[in-house]
């Protein structure tokens, strides 16, 4: 299980990374922490011809308050989110979800930008950013553009990022209203069979592994806005969804889990 050969380039800035990506064409990939990409390369599910290493761009490792929001550099590691005093005060959901990713060794290497760009619907942090109504900043040859988290995830491992764009920042509104994250799995360290992130007392609810992307539970949010109880709103969590079936769970079981976990998450977030 050795990756296929590739050319290795080290980017010394985000602009340099974009330039290297443009030059590498469709076969170039960014390498950040590598904890999603390297396993896929080892299984030869991914065989990029050029790897552009952005893991040394320490100027994109930060967590700071900015205009009522929290701005996080794309290269910030999961363990840095987990232990962040800024997040503990202004966006505890993001820190708590980061602490649920993989295991400590994985969290020391994996990055927020990497997990979002990888766009695995079974990952924890994409759903948290979606529930929070975050904004992603992509840098490309023409400069920066903002992409709402709601528009970012377009399919299995697919995002709105162009092949020559790089995520440089993630912004989430400061959010200290009732929050919770529920993650159901059977083995330690596994991906969520189903997960639910609740932000701001239920104004944002997003589901993990219930479709080809992380999914906003719009029916639940609407019911809560209309005054439904946590239990009544949670009953709508799987409405209209067609979740995947695999060895861990069939689609019906996933729908059941989505309803149960949403109820638990809403209740823990203080929704009556």
């Amino acid at each position: 299980m050795i990756p296929a050969a590739f050319d290795y380039e080290v980017a010394d800035s985000a602009a340099h990374a974009v330039e290297l990506l443009s030059r590498g064409g469709d076969e170039a990939k960014l390498l950040a922490g590598g904890h999603s990409l390297i396993p896929m390369m080892r299984y030869r599910l991914a065989t990029p011809s050029v790897l552009v290493d952005v893991g040394r761009l320490d100027d994109l490792r930060y967590i700071e308050r900015r205009n009522g929001a929290v701005a996080v550099g794309a290269l910030t590691r999961h363990s840095e989110l987990e232990h962040s005093g800024v997040l503990a005060e202004h966006c505890p959901l993001l820190a708590a979800v980061a602490a649920e990713v993989g295991d400590p060794a994985v969290r020391h290497r994996g990055t927020l930008g990497g997990t979002l760009a990888h766009a695995d619907p079974a990952s924890d942090l994409p759903a948290a950013v979606l529930a929070l109504g975050g904004t992603l900043v992509a840098r490309g040859p023409g400069g920066d553009r903002e992409i709402a988290a709601a528009d970012f995830f377009t399919g299995w491992f697919e995002s709105a990022l162009a092949p020559d764009e790089m995520l440089v920042e993630v912004r989430v509104p400061a959010s200290t209203g009732g929050w919770n994250y529920q993650k159901f799995n059977r083995r330690a360290q596994d991906w969520a069979i189903v997960g639910v992130a609740v932000a701001d007392g239920g104004s944002g609810v997003a589901l993990v592994n219930m479709g080809s992307t992380p999914i906003r539970a719009a029916a639940v949010e609407q019911a809560l806005a209309d005054g439904a109880t946590a239990a009544d709103a949670a009953a709508l969590a799987a409405e209209g969804l067609d979740p995947p079936a695999d060895l861990n769970a069939d689609a019906d079981f996933r729908r059941h889990l989505a309803r149960v976990l949403t109820r638990r998450a809403l209740t823990a977030a203080g929704v009556p």
């Binding site: 299980m1 290795y8 390498l31 590598g34 904890h35 390297i38 396993p39 080892r42 299984y43 363990s79 295991d103 400590p104 060794a105 994985v106 020391h108 290497r109 360290q189």
Partner: peptide, 22 residues
């Protein structure tokens, strides 16, 4: 495959799975 941790080393003082790092 980065699941078992037998290859754990410290990289700049922090645990890392050396099978999942180039």
């Amino acid at each position: 495959s980065s699941s078992c941790g037998a290859c754990t080393v410290l990289v700049d003082g922090l645990s890392a799975k050396s099978c999942t790092m180039l």
